[in-house]
């Protein structure tokens, strides 16, 4: 299995916000935190207005990973960028580094105290036992461990938002572009996120993944 990737086809996005709602509901994301959102570019310009669904793109060479002072980020073997909330100090460096504005910080109290960073997990949970209460509380549902793709993409009514293995996603998009006679520039953000790889990223992936531990109990 190669890298997991998101692709938003701006030619198809109708700004229904179904992906946003699906994400919010699936992970019970707190008020004020938007793991995914729909943005409109060239707003009001006739013929050039495009909507696209944006979240963490799980970049090949993730800038958030590079700037984190506590090194709480890791990349899984499937190319999903995740973080350990127990290590995060909520400094906000990742927010400034991210080209997609993905990192979110829950705020509470009179002075708007900033909590630990929260972002899209590609529905892959985090560094807690798969499917456990602790994992759900901190990171949301782990659909990947259930053999499912992120709900935002699976819920998308026009299939503008695609998720999954890079080869599969690229093939689907290529087929569409050929059929409709486009140029393939509709996948905004794709080259920013996946334009370059990193050898360091693979090293981190190897370090962050456990050697097959024994699992006991748990529901099917």
């Amino acid at each position: 299995m190669a890298r997991m990737k998101f692709l938003c086809d701006t030619e198809r996005c109708i700004e229904c916000n179904g992906c946003v709602t699906a994400c919010k509901n699936e992970h019970e994301v707190p008020w004020g935190v938007q793991r995914r959102r729909v943005v409109t570019i060239n707003d009001g310009v006739v013929g050039q207005e495009k909507s696209l669904s944006v979240a963490c793109m799980h970049c090949s060479d993730a800038p958030c990973m590079a700037v984190c002072p506590t090194d709480c980020f890791y990349r899984t073997e499937e190319g999903v960028v995740l973080h350990d909330k127990d290590v995060c100090i909520g400094c906000g460096y990742c927010f400034y580094a991210c080209p997609f504005g993905a990192p979110q910080f829950p705020q509470s109290g009179t002075f708007g105290l900033r909590g630990k960073m929260d972002k899209c997990t590609f529905c892959a949970g985090g560094p807690e036992e798969d499917g456990s209460e602790a994992e759900f509380e901190k990171y949301g549902k782990n659909r990947l461990a259930e053999g499912k793709l992120p709900l935002c993409a699976e819920m998308c009514s026009t299939k503008a938002l695609l998720a999954g293995d890079a080869v599969e996603v690229s093939n689907i998009f290529r087929e569409r572009v050929i059929r409709r006679g486009g140029k393939g520039v509709e996948a905004i953000g794709w080259s920013t996120a996946y334009g370059k790889g990193s050898a360091d990223a693979d090293t981190r992936a190897a370090a962050a993944t456990a050697p097959v531990p024994e699992k006991t109990g748990g529901a099917q």
Partner: peptide
């Protein structure tokens, strides 16, 4: 430059796929 958090399991190592 090295990940400081807890070690994560792979998705297929969970109760649904058991490795």
């Amino acid at each position: 430059g090295e990940y400081q958090g807890k070690v994560d399991t792979r998705p297929w190592e969970g109760p649904a796929y058991k490795g």
